[in-house]
């Protein structure tokens, strides 16, 4: 199933105002991997994500999704393969009713009416939001919006999911539910985030970006233990790996 692969080779991107965002990023994701993309603000995470489904076209270097290199010609195919969940669900949910929003992608793929209906209800039931289908998106809570935004991407049956800060602005319970949900997915998933505790739960592999370059790429467990590396990447050990706040982990806390 080679179409679940993402390959990025020496990717470079400079914004029109001259700010370099990516300066030669390379990595390879294989089928079914869940990978975290971490790094400081402005390290290039979002710019990299925008390349993965063709919102930006590489200026130099290459992005390959499955068997297709990303070019303007392969864009429709790439967008069908890669589902992108944006950071702000309000950007993603633009239709007046939840159902229409989840149906937006499948209808644009030109699927027949019955298939669309089936896909929409299926996607909504995966995220546990079938009861929201007739509600307007602006009336949903933050957690509900996030679920629906994910459903609106799932309904296109992508093989790769790209998520930008999925746990941002969620309450702890909603965050936990999201993590459980993502654990059940078999897609290849790449998550840009600052939530390192979630990374610990979800992602076996972590890529650290710094100033538009890959600072480290390896098993999450090793990277999140390496304090020197974390510090240079503007990161911090996940709270769970830090000592107890009362005794500093020096002794058994009662």
């Amino acid at each position: 199933m080679s179409h679940h692969i993402i390959e990025v080779k020496d990717l470079q991107y400079t914004y029109p105002d001259g700010t370099p965002a990516l300066r030669g990023v390379s990595f390879l994701l294989t089928h079914g991997e869940t990978v975290a993309l971490v790094g400081a603000n402005g390290a290039g995470k979002s710019t990299l994500l925008l390349h993965l489904n063709g919102c930006l076209i590489p200026q130099a270097g290459m992005v390959r999704i499955g068997d297709f290199p990303l070019t303007r010609k392969t864009l429709p195919h790439v967008r069908r393969t890669v589902g992108m969940v944006f950071q702000d669900p309000d950007d993603q949910l633009f239709m007046p009713v939840v159902y229409d929003d989840v149906a937006f992608g499948p209808l644009n793929l030109g699927l027949p009416q019955e298939d669309v209906e089936e896909r929409v209800m299926n996607a909504l039931s995966i995220v546990g939001a079938t009861h929201l289908k007739d509600r307007p998106p602006y009336r949903l809570s933050g957690g509900e919006k996030r679920s629906v935004a994910i459903a609106s991407v799932l309904s296109m049956a992508p093989s790769i999911l790209v998520m930008d800060e999925p746990t941002a602005s969620l309450d702890p319970k909603a965050r936990r539910q999201l993590i459980h949900l993502l654990k059940t997915f078999t897609h290849t998933i790449i998550i840009a985030t600052h939530d390192l505790d979630m990374v610990l739960d979800l992602c076996a592999r972590t890529i650290v970006l710094k100033e538009g370059q890959v600072l480290a790429d390896g098993p999450t467990w090793e990277i999140l233990q390496n304090e020197e590396l974390l510090d240079s990447g503007h990161l911090e050990k996940p709270l769970r790996l830090q000592g107890c706040p009362r005794c500093g982990g020096e002794r058994e806390c009662p």
Binding site: R79, D91, Q92, F94, F104, G105, N108, S152, M156
Partner: peptide, 20 residues
């Protein structure tokens, strides 16, 4: 951003709504 999100889901200038 909204336009990007729409393009990501195959928007081609026409909004299709399924409810007949």
């Amino acid at each position: 951003r909204v336009h990007l999100a729409m393009r990501c889901r195959g928007f081609d200038g026409e909004i299709r709504v399924s409810r007949p």
